[in-house]
């Protein structure tokens, strides 16, 4: 075999190799993505279990109260604002739809069921994600990149117990309460637009609200709120805690990317979980 034939063969081999890698590229990418996803799922499950176990350490109560204030009490105003206008829009749209069938008397039913079963838990979770969840990720992320979490470990302070557990418990306490506030203010918002502004019957509105809501509707809404609380707290804390391990950025950029991921992922997971929980509860 001549030198020329040899070089021709190796060029063909290179071309063949490129073709194979081009064909396998989508599978390799999907495989890497899947392995990464499984790895994150495993890590976040362990993360959640460890954080839950550390809830029962001593000296947790003051930290939980502090986080309930931050996640819950500080979010009340924005929840009131959003729920009031959500209720108003719901009242407005529903009134105009119902009036065509002469069924404006059912306005209270529509507003109450929409809010208590779906809109209340979902919008509350999304609003808390935007207000408190993003801040949790950013705060924990900065503590991670500035070695504050390492400092906790060197002081033998369990960083999961100190930073994560109180936030998870505080979310589980705050989400249902804020959901209840959302439902209540939303119903009032529906009353303002449907009754006070558009002239629906006030007695019928409140009668329908009371009549159409079962206790199960309320408890189902709270169950959803608790599920969303765990999802939002887990995703936001996890993204911040492991901000330093991101492959797409380092330092402040990693914290920014972690915060974005936390908000987007929390919202998407809340909506997916909403469907799953609803289908299980219905």
């Amino acid at each position: 075999m001549t030198l020329n034939e040899n070089s021709q063969n190796s060029a063909e081999q290179v071309r063949g190799g490129r073709l194979v890698s081009l064909l396998t590229w989508p599978f390799a990418t999907m495989g890497r993505g899947f392995i990464g996803w499984v790895s994150h799922m495993g890590a976040s499950t362990i993360f959640l279990c460890l954080a839950c176990l550390k809830v029962f350490r001593p000296k947790q109560l003051p930290k939980i109260i502090e986080q309930v204030y931050y996640i819950g009490a500080s979010s009340v105003l924005i929840i009131i604002l959003v729920s009031f206008f959500t209720g108003m829009v719901l009242g407005l749209q529903s009134y105009h739809a119902l009036v065509q069938f002469g069924a404006q008397g059912s306005l209270g039913t529509l507003v109450a069921l929409s809010l208590v079963r779906e809109l209340g838990p979902v919008l509350t979770a999304i609003m808390i994600t935007a207000r408190a969840g993003s801040a949790i990720t950013a705060q924990i992320g900065i503590e991670r990149i500035s070695e504050q979490i390492d400092a906790l470990d060197t002081m033998r302070i369990d960083s999961l117990g100190y930073l994560i557990s109180p936030r998870i418990v505080a979310s589980i306490i705050s989400f249902p309460i804020l959901t209840a506030v959302f439902d209540l203010i939303g119903i009032l918002g529906g009353y303002v637009s449907g009754v006070l502004l558009l002239g629906a019957n006030p007695g019928a509105y409140f009668y329908r609200v009371q009549d159409s809501l079962d206790f199960k509707d309320v408890t189902d809404g709270f169950i959803k709120a608790v599920v969303f609380a765990v999802i939002v707290a887990l995703v936001c804390c996890y993204q911040g805690y492991f901000a330093h391990m991101r492959e797409d950025g380092r330092g402040a950029k990693a914290v920014g990317l972690a915060t974005t991921s936390a908000v987007v992922l929390s919202c998407v997971l809340v909506l997916i979980a909403d469907y799953i929980v609803t289908s299980l509860l219905i």
Binding site: E143, S146, E147, Q148, D150, A151, T154, M155, R156
Partner: peptide, 18 residues
């Protein structure tokens, strides 16, 4: 735990809680 109980570490960038 016992081994680390008596150890303390001063970070280069201080690692203070801001």
């Amino acid at each position: 735990d016992e081994c680390r109980a008596g150890m303390s570490y001063m970070f280069q960038d201080n690692a203070l809680f801001d």
